[in-house]
Nucleic acid binder design. Structure first.
Length: 580
DNA sequence: GGGGGAATATTAT
DNA sequence: TTCCAATAATATTCCCCC
């Protein structure tokens, strides 16, 4: 297509677009307002319902898989969960969200009768600017394998096709076959709940090597049509078909049919796909005709796109989850078209980033970029286990995790300056404590030293999960640089005459945990004030910790001898209370 | 007040 | 009878310090 044509084409589109806006905006203000009020009232809250909705799990609405007894299913889930620690925590979270919404609504009360023409003008300008970024030249396809892990299992074991089956364990399912879905059994559902919904459900453990094999075959097909395809997980990828389409007579739909056929021939597995002008819309489209189907949203017609998006439920949009759905619903926004009607209010009540995001969704504008090779920003390990509060056990769990993380970092040749520990209490409250160091670390020993410190500050705890995470990372190789940095910034212990210059540069660098003169530090374990350089301070803490460990072991033995009394570390003043 | 780091929340697979 | 994951990214909120 020539540039000339391009220009004409787009100016035509601008007109179309304005018509669309006018059309939508033509009703008089009062009338619109009435309508919205009604909508808001219709949305009036039912706390039970929202909680049940939460419990039903994230995938309830996303993939509308027939409406088997949704009520019945939700009720069974509710009954199975009632009274558990998990349930109680869900209630607390749900209340927190309700509070957050109430806060937004009371802000809304203050502005709802105001004349918002000014903010309307601002938002209209934003819309105009966003329009400039609309790209209708790309043909993006999102391919999603149907019930991937389950289907791979069925290949090896065809009897599984005849019975409801799910892949995963008692604690969590990864996916289920379509027979199981008819019972309401879905991914991200704990297995024991699934068994309540479908007692004859067959549970299959995960076999990653098989899924990776299958995934590689699928990817080999993708490669033929877009060598830069963007894999999102084993069973999902984006392809930019623009270039390939330019070499053939095929329509986008025909090409994608062909791709799905080739996937089937290569793996005996079915896939669903969506084709649109950007990644967001392509993903939305791939949900429309699954399983084993595809949907094409014409990529070069702005008005078709605007019409498509207008009636799309906001929840269908990737990035809008259960919480955002509730927040927006309380403001009368259910479909993407509502975003435009409520734009002035949303502008006042949402953060700039969320507001911008919602405008893009209303316009059907999304990213088409396939920039791979974004370097990893963090790496973590975490494990769930049965309730644990004994410091000795906690330390051995921590040790284990540090070993694992060290291995993973090694694999990726990474080191980092920020380390965090995550604790999930038996009541499901999550605490994360982190520390940034002046130098990069990577060995299990160093990681353990820091995380021990962080852990001890939190004692006593009674937890069901522990995790550690490294961030502020960098490729190893560049060690020399970090080491030099470390030494130039750390004042030499014996050298009390740090020059004025040094002080200046230290301040300019303003690195955390580096001070100009020897600092007076408080040992997190014994609470004593110490005047030591970093290295000696760390040494002290290490020793102090091992003393605490010994104490803990002794105390533990004592406790055991006495009776099974539970918490063993209540005499230490708990360092910091966490505010919620 | 505002910059910046730490803690927390949300989302996705 | 019990029983709700692991990993990563990003946004938002909280809080401390100049």
């Amino acid at each position: 297509m020539s540039d000339q044509e391009d220009v004409e084409h787009s100016s035509q589109l601008v007109e179309e677009e304005q018509d669309f806006f006018l059309d939508d905006d033509s009703g008089d203000f009062e009338e619109q307002f009435e309508l919205l009020q009604e909508k808001l009232e219709a949305v009036a809250v039912d706390n039970e319902a929202s909680l049940r909705h939460m419990l039903a799990g994230p995938s309830t609405n996303k993939a509308g898989l027939g409406n088997i007894n949704k009520e019945q299913v939700n009720k069974i889930i509710y009954e199975a969960s009632k009274g558990s620690a998990f349930f109680e925590h869900e209630k607390i979270k749900d209340e927190a969200i309700t509070k957050r919404i109430d806060a937004i609504l009371s802000k809304y009360e203050l502005i709802k009768n105001q004349n918002l023409l000014f903010e309307q003008r601002i938002t209209d300008n934003m819309i105009r600017d966003l329009e400039q970024t609309r790209d209708l030249t790309q043909c993006i396809c999102h391919v999603d394998m149907d019930a991937f892990y389950a289907s791979v299992e069925e290949l090896e074991n065809p009897e599984l096709k005849q019975i409801p089956m799910a892949v995963g364990g008692l604690s969590m399912l990864c996916t289920s076959n379509y027979l199981a879905r008819a019972f309401g059994v879905r991914s991200a559902m704990p297995g024991f709940i699934a068994l309540k919904l479908c007692p004859q459900l067959k549970l299959i453990p995960l076999h990653f090597p098989k899924y990776i094999d299958a995934s590689n075959k699928v990817r080999a097909v993708f490669e033929k049509y877009d060598p830069n395809f963007l894999p999102m997980s084993l069973d999902e990828a984006y392809l930019n078909l623009t270039e390939y389409l330019a070499t053939t007579d095929m329509t986008p739909s025909q090409l994608v049919e062909k791709i799905r056929t080739e996937i089937f021939e290569a793996t005996q597995l079915t896939a669903s796909a969506g084709i649109a002008c950007n990644k967001t819309l392509a993903k939305v489209c791939s949900d429309i005709n699954k399983p084993n189907g595809q949907y094409y949203l014409p990529i070069d017609s702005k008005s078709t796109i605007l019409n498509f998006v207008k009636d799309l439920k906001i929840r269908q949009i990737p990035g809008v989850g259960r919480v955002t759905e509730r927040v927006l619903e309380s403001l009368g926004v259910v479909k993407c078209g509502d975003i435009y009607l409520r734009r002035a209010v949303l502008y006042k009540l949402l953060s700039p980033i969320s507001f911008q995001f919602m405008l893009r969704n209303y316009l059907g504008i999304g990213s088409t970029s396939f920039s791979e090779e974004v370097e990893r920003k963090s790496q973590s390990v975490e494990r769930t286990f049965s309730a644990m509060s004994n410091p000795t056990e906690l330390l051995s769990k921590l040790h284990e995790l540090c070993q694992l993380l060290e291995k993973d970092l090694e694999k990726n040749n990474l080191m980092g300056r920020n380390i965090a520990i995550k604790l999930k209490s038996v009541t499901y409250e999550v605490r994360i404590r982190s520390k940034t160091m002046p130098s990069y670390i990577w060995t299990a020993k160093d990681i353990e030293r820091i995380t021990k410190e962080l852990l001890f500050k939190e004692l006593p705890v009674n937890i069901r999960l522990m995790g550690i995470r490294m961030s502020a990372m960098k490729q190893r190789g560049s060690e020399d640089e970090s080491v030099r940095k470390y030494f130039t910034k750390l004042p030499l212990p014996e050298n009390s005459s740090a020059t004025a210059d040094n002080k200046m540069s230290n301040r300019e660098l303003s690195e955390p945990n580096v001070t100009e003169t020897l600092p007076s530090l408080t040992c997190p374990i014994c609470n004593r004030q110490l005047v030591l350089d970093n290295e000696n301070f760390n040494k002290h803490v290490d020793e102090c910790l091992s003393k605490v460990e010994v104490k803990a072991i002794l105390k533990d033995q004592l406790d055991r001898e006495r009776l099974d009394s539970v918490s063993s570390t209540s005499n230490r003043p708990s360092a910091k209370r966490v505010k919620r």
